[in-house]
Each structure stands twice: as C-alpha cells, then as structure tokens.
Design a protein around this nucleic acid. Structure first.
Length: 476
RNA sequence: CGGGGCGUAGCGCAGCUUGGUAGCGCACUUGCUUUGGGAGCAAGGGGUCGCAGGUUCGAAUCCUGUCGCCCCGACCA
C-alpha cells in the first residue's frame, strides 16, 4: 500500500481523530462559530438531498404527505405529556424575548414536534372518516447537548419526523413497522449501511412512547449507532392532546398515534461504516460525484487528452454524475489522492497511452483496483462498476459486522473483545441488570432484535432465565 | 457536568522556561519549467500572538481573570 495521506490520522491510531480529519478533509462540514453547531457544506448537503429524495419518494408511495409546523412551541403545550416533558426538559432551548419585550409565556425551540402537531391534530380530527392522518415534516430541531460531534450529535440537526393518527392500535403498529422498513431500505440499499432492527428496552424508549423500534448499525470502532427510530405512541399523546374522533358506532374515541424520525446522523453512519485511512468512501447512489475524470499528459499531449476527456464527460453526463478535473495547477497524483479522500467511487484516468489505444483506465475507490476499458464499452462497464461498488461496500460492511458480532453467555466475555462490537446475549428483562452492565462496562442494550429467540443460557448479567434475546454494545 | 488537551497568518506548528516588538512548513499570488500516485525554481502578499486587566522602560513570553474550541467519560437522534 502506498504512502498514507498525511492529513488523515489512521483509524487504528485514533478513531475519533480519524473521523474529525475525514469530515474536514473531505469537505463535508465546517465548525460553526457556535458551540455544538456545524455547517453542512455543499458536498455533505448534497448527500442529504439524495437521502431526502429517496426517503420522500417512499413516504409518498406509502400515502404520506409533507407539511410544516412551527419552530416554536409554547410551554403549555410542551408540558402536556408528562413523560415526554421529563425526557426532554434538560435539552430544550427557550425563547424568552421578542424584540425588547419579555414574553408572557416562554417558547421552546422544538426538540421534536409531537406536542405542537398533536395540538393541531386535535383540531383537525372529528370523525373516523378523518383517519388515518399521515403527515411527514422535513425540519430542523434543537436539543441542547453537552457533548457534540458533527453529524452524530449536534445541537441543531436536520431530520424528517412523521406523525400519524390511526383508528386502531393494530393499524398504528403496522404503520410504525412499515416506516421502520423504509428506513431499513434507505440505510441498506441507498447508504450501504447494514442494520439490525429491534425494539428498544423500556429504559431506552422514546419519552412518551409505548414501543420504540430502532435500527442499529455497527461503526468501524465497534460502537453502535442508532440510525433511525419509529415509535408506537399508543394513546398517550392522543389523551394528552385530546385527539378524539367519533367512531362509526357513535362513540367518541381516542386516536392511536405514531412518530418516526431519521436524521443527518445517517451521514455519520455512512462515513464511519465505509471510510478508510485514505478518507471517505461513498456508495455511488449517494455520491455527489460518481466518476471523476483525470486527464494525464504534458504539452500537446495534455491538450489532446483533455479534449478527448471533455468529450467523454459530455457524452456520459446524462447518465452519470461525472466531473472532469482539468485543473492545471495540480499533478495527477495529487488529484488521485484528493478525490480518494473525498470518496468518489470511480476515477477515470486518461493519458496518451489510453488515447493511442482507444481505452480508458478506471480505478475503483472501494478496492483500489484499476481496470482498462475499451472505448466502445465505456458506458455499460461504468454502470456495472458503479453497481458493483455499491454492492461491495455493503458486503464489506456486512462482513465487518459479522466478524465483530459475538454471542455471549455472560457479560464478562465482552472483555475479550474490549467491549467493542455487537454482543448477542440473553437478558432477564430487569432494568437493574441493564444498569449494572452499563455501570461496569459502558455497554447498553441497543435493542431486542425482531425475531430473535433466547438461547436459554440465562441472563448475561444475573444468570436468571432469559426473557429476551438482546443486542448489546457501547453506543454513540 | 467531570477529566484531558489546545488557542500565534487560511491550515499545521515553533517561539514562552531565561521579556527586547514574530518565524517555519503547507496553502495563496505572479512567472517559467512540469504532469501515469501529493512537481521544481524564483519573486511576492498575508498575523491588534483568543479576550480583558495587571507587572515592566518594554509582554506572544510573567501574573490574575475570562471566553472559546477539540477529545474522552456520564446523559440523549
């Protein structure tokens, strides 16, 4: 392997520093002049736009519509659902002044919108004929966090939050799971991030939810990242906000609500799952630039090669997100490293030799492999290669996860792996065991994977009969 | 909120111990030569040394305070 990039700290040396280096050097973000906030630069915002587009399409296909609710929530609304307030009170930012005037009631900057949306739904819903209500919102939210990291946890972040109301518990639960399925598609098929679907234990549940479903992904340092959540809220919010409808039988009933959200944190998952010591590796489906073309040559050769490369780019630009790097001030070697750092999936090199033989040389970012393609095969070979990179990145992530997932019969076994990785074990269901585990090892219950049966080896903490098969890990 | 680290040019740093009016590398500008894995030479531009007090003839350097950022933990997408 050739010399590593000087600007990026190797993952093995210091994973956090590696992450910080990559997000900066790949031109994804800049730190904002306010603690805990970041600027998403065009390169990362474009990735977010691809995620948005794919998700939005799936939401529409499943009958949802977008709407937009206010940024500010009056205090009296925020505190209506007791558990919910308790869960969020520590991280709410408040607006107390309007111009020079002190406000009569302080206004919360939304940490999430269940309350204000619930208040509106209560007014909109009268009859069973008004149900279901299936609305999604693309928005920013604010949570006053103590420790922040770009994408993974920032004070302000972008997300979508879906809020639905249903006539029955069954329908609401089905909605909750359906949306979880969409998140899974986005993470796995679009971002190439394999996830484990499960239900949160009571201690990890969303404040005010009856049931929280989650997708957990394994990062390159062996820590878990909660990558999307979907909540069945039962009638908790319906009762707090008086969301009632008159049913067919003439009886006034409370609706059943759900909420589900996913955030720019998914970009953090993307970076950590695929990145390597040379920088970012982007799956073609979300790569702002899928193919970069680097002309090589000197003097007259260079002009001929560049002209030819420009023609090629023009020809292919309808089909691919392709860019010609004809900057004269950098050498090819510099450009190779630069685009690798930024994670571009394929690089085309065109030099005098290629020109003479009517061929192009393609380098894959995922494997580093170089392939020579005849001119008349370029278009179809490139699309195949892009698909192959997309698939390979996902497969590599699946393999990494498989080799870092361990079944354990007691929690001491986790120490053999430095508490890094996914651990599957039986759990008795007692929060005291979960607390003790966390206290001693910083490992938490990420979820109870859907469809997983207990092994019968007893709770990994107390040894009592297991009630659930659980996925344990240290988490971001 | 605890622990650690750091604030000097756009970035990375040296200078501080022992005070004397700021330097190196990269980046940037111009010119020439270069280009199949981070090019070379030459000439340039750019800094109220985080901020505020204090000590001193004189402070990047010493003292006091303060603000900010990064990392690691505890709490949360």
């Amino acid at each position: 392997m050739e010399k590593l990039l000087k600007e990026i700290t190797p993952k093995s040396q210091d994973y956090s520093q590696w992450y910080t280096d990559v997000i900066k050097k790949a031109d994804l973000v800049d730190y904002a002049p306010i603690k805990g906030f970041m600027v998403m630069k065009p390169y990362s915002y474009r990735i977010w736009e691809f995620i948005q587009a794919a998700m939005d399409r799936r939401f529409r296909e499943t009958g949802h519509e977008n709407a937009y609710f206010p940024l500010l929530i009056p205090e009296h609304l925020l505190i209506k659902e007791a558990e919910h307030v308790e869960g969020f009170s520590a991280e709410v930012a408040w607006v107390t002044m309007g111009g020079d005037e002190v406000l009569a009631e302080r206004l919360a900057i939304r940490p999430t919108s269940e309350t204000i949306i619930g208040a509106m739904y209560a007014q909109w819903i009268q009859s069973y004929r008004d149900l279901p209500v299936l609305i999604n919102q693309w928005a920013n939210v604010l949570r006053w966090e103590k420790a922040t990291r770009p994408f993974l946890r920032t004070t302000e972040f972008l997300w979508q939050e879906g809020h639905t109301v249903h006539r029955s518990a069954e329908e609401a639960e089905a909605e909750t799971l359906q949306q979880l399925g969409i998140y899974r598609e986005i993470l796995e098929d679009l971002l190439g991030v394999p996830v484990i679907a499960g239900v949160k234990s009571a201690g990890e549940r969303f404040a005010g939810a009856v049931q929280t479903y989650t997708l957990e992904a394994l990062m390159g340092d062996g820590k878990a990242l909660q990558s999307a959540t979907s909540h069945f809220l039962g009638q908790n919010f319906a009762k707090a906000f008086d969301i009632q409808y008159l049913d067919e039988d003439g009886v006034l009933k409370f609706g059943w609500t759900t909420s589900w959200g996913s955030t720019t944190r998914m970009i953090g998952a993307l970076i950590m799952v695929h990145g390597d010591d040379k920088g970012l590796r982007l799956p073609p489906r979300v790569a702002p630039i899928q193919i970069v073309v680097v002309p090589i040559g000197r003097g007259a050769d260079r002009d001929r090669v560049t002209d030819w490369a420009r023609d090629l780019v023009n020809k292919l630009s309808g089909e691919f997100r392709i860019k010609l790097d004809d900057r004269n001030e950098f050498t090819p070697g510099y450009k190779f490293n630069d685009w690798e750092m930024r994670g571009v999936p394929l690089r085309i090199e065109i030099g005098p030799r290629d020109l003479a033989q009517k061929q192009i040389t393609v380098a894959r970012r995922d494997t580093g492999e170089k392939i020579v393609i005849a001119e008349n095969m370029v278009s179809e070979t490139l699309s195949q290669l892009l698909e192959d990179v997309q698939r390979t990145l996902f497969e590599q992530a699946v393999e990494y996860r498989a080799s870092h997932t361990f079944s354990v019969e007691n929690y001491q076994e986790m120490a053999h792996h430095n508490h890094r990785g996914f651990f599957l074990g039986d759990w008795c269901g007692q929060e005291t065991c979960a607390d003790r585990l966390k206290q001693e090892t910083s490992v938490t219950i990420r979820c109870l994977p859907l469809g997983a049966d207990i092994a019968g080896t007893g709770c990994i903490v107390c040894g009592q009969p297991g009630q659930h098969r659980a996925l344990f890990a240290r988490a971001y």
